[in-house]
Amino acid sequence: MAKKLTKKDVIDALYNVIDMEIGLDIVNLGFVYGIDIDDDNNVKVVMTLTTPGCPLVAPLQEDVANRLKEIGANDVQVELVWDPPWNPSMMSEEARKRLLGE
């Protein structure tokens, strides 16, 4: 039987999903709003992007699914939400330093 995935496993994998326009991962950018893992290692990621018109919607969703399948997820659902809207305060301190010079 496959190892039961944890939220930490999923988050660690999502650090490898890079928003190519910004050059940082979706975790530090604050895009990941929620993670649900069922007993069969099916994973649902609730996330957002900077704007609804972001041209990277499909590539980022695909990258999330691929990264999670690499660590043992069976089915991956990526739900994009726009509420609450993303804003720079959602980024990690590291991301704000790199992007905003804070």
Rank of each mutant, 00 (worst) to 15 (best):
N87C: 01
V43C: 01
D25I: 03
I18M: 09
D25T: 07
P84F: 12
K69C: 02
Q61W: 00
N74Y: 02
R67F: 04
N42R: 00
D19Y: 09
M20R: 14
T51I: 13
L56T: 11
K44N: 10
N87G: 08
K4H: 03
E21I: 00
I71Y: 02
N41H: 01
D39M: 03
L56M: 15
E94H: 03
V17A: 06
D9K: 02
V78H: 02
D63A: 15
C54L: 11
W86I: 01
Y15C: 00
V81T: 14
E79M: 06
I26Y: 03
L80P: 11
D39F: 08
A2V: 15
G23R: 10
I22M: 06
M91E: 02
L60C: 12
V78N: 04
F31L: 08
M91Q: 01
M1Q: 12
K8S: 11
M1S: 15
A13R: 11
E102Y: 15
G72Y: 05
T51A: 07
I35H: 11
M1I: 13
L80E: 14
I37C: 11
M91C: 04
P88A: 13
K3Q: 15
G72K: 13
P52V: 14
P84V: 15
I71C: 07
M20L: 15
R98I: 12
E102T: 11
N28D: 15
G23E: 08
P88D: 14
L80I: 15
I35Y: 05
V27L: 02
D38Y: 03
F31Q: 06
N74I: 00
T51S: 13
P85W: 08
A73W: 07
C54T: 09
P52M: 09
Q77I: 15
V57Y: 00
N28R: 00
D40Y: 04
A13K: 06
Y33H: 07
Y33V: 07
A65V: 07
I26C: 05
L56G: 13
G30Y: 04
K3I: 05
S92T: 10
G30A: 01
W86N: 08
L68F: 08
I37W: 05
V10W: 01
P55D: 10
E79Y: 06
P85R: 10
W82A: 05
P52Q: 08
I22F: 02
E70L: 11
E21K: 04
S89M: 09
L99R: 01
V27R: 12
G23A: 02
R98F: 02
V10T: 05
I37N: 04
N42P: 00
V78Q: 07
D83K: 15
D19N: 09
